[in-house]
Amino acid sequence: ATQWMDRFGDNLYNMYGSTEVAVATIANPEDLRAAPGTAGKPLSGVDVRLYDDDDREVTEPDAVGRIFVGSALRFEGYTGGQTKPAIDGLLSSGDLGRFDADGRLFVGGREDDMIVSGGENLFPSEVEDLLSDMEGVREVAVFGVDDDQFGQRLAAFVVPEDGVTLDDRAIKDHVRANLANYKVPRSVWFLDELPRNPTGKVLKRDLRQRFPDA
Score class of each variant (00 low, 15 high):
residue 1 A to L: 01
residue 2 T to M: 06
residue 6 D to M: 07
residue 6 D to P: 01
residue 7 R to A: 13
residue 8 F to K: 05
residue 8 F to A: 04
residue 14 N to D: 07
residue 14 N to S: 12
residue 14 N to I: 08
residue 15 M to G: 15
residue 15 M to W: 09
residue 15 M to I: 12
residue 16 Y to D: 14
residue 16 Y to C: 13
residue 16 Y to K: 15
residue 17 G to Y: 08
residue 21 V to Y: 11
residue 21 V to T: 15
residue 25 T to R: 04
residue 28 N to M: 06
residue 31 D to I: 06
residue 31 D to Q: 10
residue 32 L to M: 13
residue 33 R to E: 08
residue 34 A to L: 09
residue 35 A to Y: 12
residue 37 G to I: 12
residue 37 G to C: 10
residue 38 T to A: 09
residue 40 G to N: 12
residue 40 G to W: 07
residue 41 K to A: 08
residue 42 P to A: 09
residue 45 G to D: 08
residue 45 G to A: 12
residue 46 V to T: 15
residue 47 D to M: 10
residue 48 V to F: 09
residue 49 R to A: 14
residue 50 L to H: 13
residue 51 Y to I: 14
residue 53 D to N: 11
residue 56 R to T: 08
residue 58 V to T: 14
residue 59 T to R: 15
residue 60 E to P: 01
residue 61 P to Q: 10
residue 62 D to W: 15
residue 64 V to I: 15
residue 66 R to S: 12
residue 73 L to S: 13
residue 76 E to L: 14
residue 77 G to A: 14
residue 79 T to Q: 15
residue 79 T to C: 07
residue 81 G to R: 14
residue 84 K to W: 10
residue 85 P to R: 05
residue 89 G to D: 10
residue 91 L to S: 09
residue 91 L to Q: 15
residue 93 S to P: 03
residue 94 G to L: 11
residue 94 G to V: 11
residue 96 L to G: 02
residue 98 R to P: 02
residue 98 R to F: 07
residue 98 R to G: 01
residue 100 D to K: 09
residue 101 A to T: 12
residue 101 A to K: 11
residue 101 A to Y: 00
residue 108 G to I: 03
residue 109 G to S: 10
residue 109 G to N: 06
residue 112 D to I: 10
residue 112 D to S: 08
residue 113 D to C: 00
residue 113 D to V: 01
residue 114 M to T: 07
residue 114 M to P: 02
residue 118 G to K: 02
residue 122 L to Y: 00
residue 123 F to Q: 04
residue 124 P to V: 00
residue 126 E to G: 07
residue 129 D to Q: 13
residue 130 L to T: 09
residue 130 L to Y: 10
residue 131 L to D: 05
residue 132 S to I: 02
residue 133 D to N: 12
residue 134 M to Y: 03
residue 136 G to A: 03
residue 137 V to L: 04
residue 140 V to H: 03
residue 143 F to K: 00
residue 143 F to M: 00
residue 144 G to F: 01
residue 147 D to R: 09
residue 148 D to K: 10
residue 150 F to A: 09
residue 151 G to F: 15
residue 151 G to W: 15
residue 154 L to F: 00
residue 156 A to T: 05
residue 156 A to W: 00
residue 158 V to I: 15
residue 159 V to H: 02
residue 160 P to I: 03
residue 163 G to S: 06
residue 166 L to A: 06
residue 167 D to V: 03
residue 167 D to Q: 02
residue 169 R to M: 02
residue 170 A to P: 00
residue 170 A to G: 03
residue 172 K to W: 04
residue 174 H to F: 05
residue 174 H to P: 04
residue 175 V to N: 04
residue 177 A to H: 08
residue 178 N to M: 05
residue 178 N to T: 08
residue 179 L to Q: 11
residue 186 R to V: 02
residue 188 V to A: 05
residue 189 W to Y: 13
residue 189 W to I: 10
residue 190 F to Q: 07
residue 191 L to Y: 08
residue 196 R to F: 01
residue 199 T to G: 01
residue 200 G to K: 11
residue 202 V to T: 15
residue 203 L to E: 13
residue 204 K to L: 03
residue 205 R to P: 00
residue 206 D to H: 04
residue 207 L to Q: 02
residue 207 L to M: 03
residue 208 R to E: 01
residue 209 Q to E: 11
residue 210 R to T: 03
residue 211 F to I: 01
residue 212 P to Y: 05
residue 213 D to T: 11
residue 214 A to V: 04
